[in-house]
Design a protein around this nucleic acid. Sequence first.
DNA 1: TTGAAAGCGCTAACAC
DNA 2: GTGTTAGCGCTTTCAA
Lengths: 338, 338
Amino acid sequence: MVTLSEVAKLAHVTAATVSNVLRNREKVHPDTAARVLKAIDELGYRPNLNARALAEGRSSTLALMLSNISNPFYPEFVLAAERAARKSGHFLMVCNTDDNAETGRAYLNQIAGTLADGVLVMNTDIAISDLYASAMHNAPILLAMWEHPESPPTLPCIAVDFARAGALAAHHLLELGHRDVGLLIGDGCGGLQDARSNGFRAAMLAAGIEADPTAALQIRDSIDAGYAACMRLMANRPELSAIFATNDLLAIGAVQALITLGHAVPDDVSVIGITDIQLAHQVHPALTTVAIQTAAVAELSIERLIGLIQTPEHEPSMVLGPLPELVVRASTGPRRKR
Amino acid sequence: MVTLSEVAKLAHVTAATVSNVLRNREKVHPDTAARVLKAIDELGYRPNLNARALAEGRSSTLALMLSNISNPFYPEFVLAAERAARKSGHFLMVCNTDDNAETGRAYLNQIAGTLADGVLVMNTDIAISDLYASAMHNAPILLAMWEHPESPPTLPCIAVDFARAGALAAHHLLELGHRDVGLLIGDGCGGLQDARSNGFRAAMLAAGIEADPTAALQIRDSIDAGYAACMRLMANRPELSAIFATNDLLAIGAVQALITLGHAVPDDVSVIGITDIQLAHQVHPALTTVAIQTAAVAELSIERLIGLIQTPEHEPSMVLGPLPELVVRASTGPRRKR
DNA sequence: TTGAAAGCGCTAACAC
DNA sequence: GTGTTAGCGCTTTCAA
């Protein structure tokens, strides 16, 4: 490995000067700088990032904790987060906790404040109190995708107005004339998605439509579960003309269940989800959904986390992410006349 | 931040002893060890991994380079790789190159041998010669998922016998009586999937069935592309009774296209893919495919990479991953009598 | 503008 | 068993 001082020797300067060339260029004479640059090039010098981190007291990596990256929602977030991190000179460490609080705590203990300067937390399986303790002792923690803007947590967070997302879905279905709507409520690695269903129900109620508890199912967060639940729902409540799912995975499963049952989507039954994952526009019929701007939220999260690292705050603060937006595709249509 | 020497002071020993307690426990007296442990606990000491990496001359993180994690195949690999890495005390840094060779080279330059002790490379957009140079100067590089076991690269790799996967698909379709099979050949972030299609064609040829070039389409690696290509294929060649796709994404797109066209799957047309991504068993009808044991390959890759780091070799070597296996689900069936 | 020197937190000989 | 010492490669005052 080529070190700073080898470069220094070749350029007939001292390590400090090489270091200066690498950072605040102004301070060094153009001629020496050129000599140093030449030496760096000849030797193929690359700074040792661990040494730099040790000397500077801060690393250049960020950690992203999530329960399980194989849920299709996460990769999109990770991609955008990694791009944003890279843009600002940071690396991204991915930490799957496998829905295991112990694993999460272990990660926090090992990397927060040493390998990683800050941690973006997406999963809810770690107790806020543990996170809080780690944030106090080790390094800033930012909660990405906080689902309850109305009740800020004791840590900084990016909040997404999921209740609004649910309401948008309701308005869309109402406009199309739907009254009998089944609910598929996800309870996955991000926790129970009740902000979404509550927002939906409130909007329906505002239109005079009372929620029917027998038309709602609370299920695990996957296509499979959505499929199975929709099957049950339609068996019990054949009069439903639309399904609202709190996330796209469930909605995609529901669409498939309906097709399997011989219902046309959207002619017989409409389906709407939330999130707008990539899959949503790739399935057929393409899914109508409420986009929560995953990539934008990811970028915002990274920016905010970096801000927190540079100028730590003592008060937790919440920033609201981009507002959810309805994306009308092919899985919703007017209620069928019967 | 609590340091080793603060712990040492509290325990009335020296830093070296604390360090010894943390690593080779035998060397230190049980009583002192207990005192040290107590001090560590009281102070909430956590080792600084950067300092350790610097002192030891090796870090505890591994890097995984891929072109774009939002392709559903990667998250499954990443999940398994991260678990394997964690099991052996390593962290995983995810590097998306966005199909950009320059980004890949930059990553390699910045982290190989400093932040990361080894790099698992999944994408083919970086020239092997660049990888080779980096492996020589910086840190071991392992090519995961090498698609051509018959021609080993100049770097260590885990090879997967994709030709065999193609052949298995062919045998399955042949057994079901299919003769007119359309080919969807992916050309995505992992490069042109020709080993798979060649394996398929060879197996068909061995059964006396010549490949018809007009029944094969080479397309980008996505559900969308599979959908569109299948539409075209069926328009041109309505007599096809089966579709073989070199990966599951394409196959899933194809199934949707067939359903949209009013063909029953598998009663009218059978569809088979390769990989067995999670989505494959979640769609309806569930996809018949050839599993390449993604998780097992990921674990093997991590183990091998760690081996390479510990005892570097000077000869590149190839190890063959688990053999592909046919997974029969609901998207294939006997050729329809006409 | 450049150099000398100290130190980041830890490990690893080697002595005692 | 435990302490002493010397780095690991870099940054950063502070002098010159």
